[in-house]
Amino acid sequence: MIKAAGIAKSFGRVRAVRGVSFTVEPGQVAGLLGPNGAGKSTTIRIITGFLPADAGIVEVAGFDMRRASLEARRHLGYLPEAAPLYPEMSVVGFLRYRAKLFGIAPRDRARAIGAAMERCRVEAVRTRRIGHLSRGYRQRVGLAAALLHDPPVLVLDEPTSALDPSQVVETRELIRDLGRTRTVLVSSHVLGEVERLCSRALIIAGGALLADGTPAELVRRHGGPARYVVEARDEGRRAEPALRAVMGVAAVREERAEGQWRRLAVEAGTDAPDLREPMAAALAGAGVAVRELSPRHASLEDVFLRLLRAADPAREHAA
């Protein structure tokens, strides 16, 4: 389990993290999302014990990061951003060093190293120097080092940033698998990644936690009013007034026109029910042929941008 309660950190006059609180339970993969300078890295560094918080409490696997720091770190596997490693060491030499550092008994070392290399698919380069590896392999070696001591808590900062598409899929699968029994916190800029990988998203900006929930919950809670797409043959321009007349429709806007076909975006009012059926009936009544009428689901990206704009109105103008 990871527990952060009211953590705050300032660097001089800059308040990097302001009273962030959340708990990630075992069996959860939580994604920490935020724009550059949001306080993501500082939050991660406080959780992993690299930086002390000015205020608040961090617990990792039940151990207080301030009072029982070594015990907390023993239960933590951490992959920092860009997976920093020693380039002069071989892959297996580096993993052996990390195994000793984490106090893995000599009789268990070879098995632990073998298992971590197999999970992260780095056996093929076990004797190669780390400095001679591709960035993707280096990232996987860093992940193997984080998994070596079989920690109950994993903190992974941008774990797939250097991987090719097939490696991204494999690594996501691995993280999902690890998350079944462990507590996993993943930091990422890639919203789609969090949507696919995480059972929970924590959105942070300006050092404060803006939202916390499953991606579906966040979309439902912060995704705004429902939207629909209608594509209709509408030479007489009867579709738009017919849609506007439907109870619950707040706005209709033409997105594009191709010959006699027009694509319309419909925005429902707040708390409006599912409008597909009344819209279909209204269009049929107006004699308009329809080839598409579908809801347009808000994505985590929409939620993210909406929350950022709400938190910082300056972004609204910039966007």
Binding site: R73, R74, L76, Y78, A82, L85
Partner: peptide, 14 residues
């Protein structure tokens, strides 16, 4: 410089 200090400082070592 290389960032490995972060890995070292978050290991169970004082």
């Amino acid at each position: 410089r290389s960032g490995t200090l972060e890995s070292l400082a978050t290991s169970p070592v004082s």
